[in-house]
Amino acid sequence: MKKVLIFLLPLGFFVLVALFLFQGLFSDPRARDSSLVNKPLPDFNLPDLMQPQVEYTPEVFKGQVSLLNVWGVWCITCAIELPYLTELSDNGVRIVGLYYDQDTDPDFGTKTVGTIQQEVNAKLGQLGNPYAFNIFDTYRDYSLDLGVTGAPETFLIDKKGVIRMHHIGDVNPRVWKNKIGPVYQRLMSE
């Protein structure tokens, strides 16, 4: 009998693997948990995109629930979500932009802040401006601190300045209804 068990071992192993493979079929291999959720926003000291003399720190998130939206004019999906974000902001959701540009080498970039401002104004004028203000992530350091891998990505931040959700990809009515919206409502009533 003991001998038979040994010969059943490969079958048992296979069944176990097959179960995991089956489960794996129904989950997105690229979905990942952010390691910053439930942690306070990392420290920063960055200028406003439109008025570089104005500087922001995490203090600007204290006291109200906000969405921090990472975006850029070069990003196609960002343009798709802009109208819906504008709708949300018209309904009273506070949305702060974290803007970064695509010049691959910020140290030797060709774009000046002036050209970036023009491009941003043109884009927002065309698709709607959901942003209370835009923080300019000059060297893309801050998006790196946030664990951003691309644009668009959106963070939900509570009244204490703690990150409560990290969403990768665009915000659309479905995402808002199923994922971000309910948490947002809860945080508002906290």
Binding site: P10, L11, A18
Partner: peptide, 13 residues
């Protein structure tokens, strides 16, 4: 694979 491993478990002893 499952079928053949089952057959194996039955016959190999």
């Amino acid at each position: 694979v499952g079928g053949s491993l089952l057959l194996y478990a039955l016959r190999a002893p």
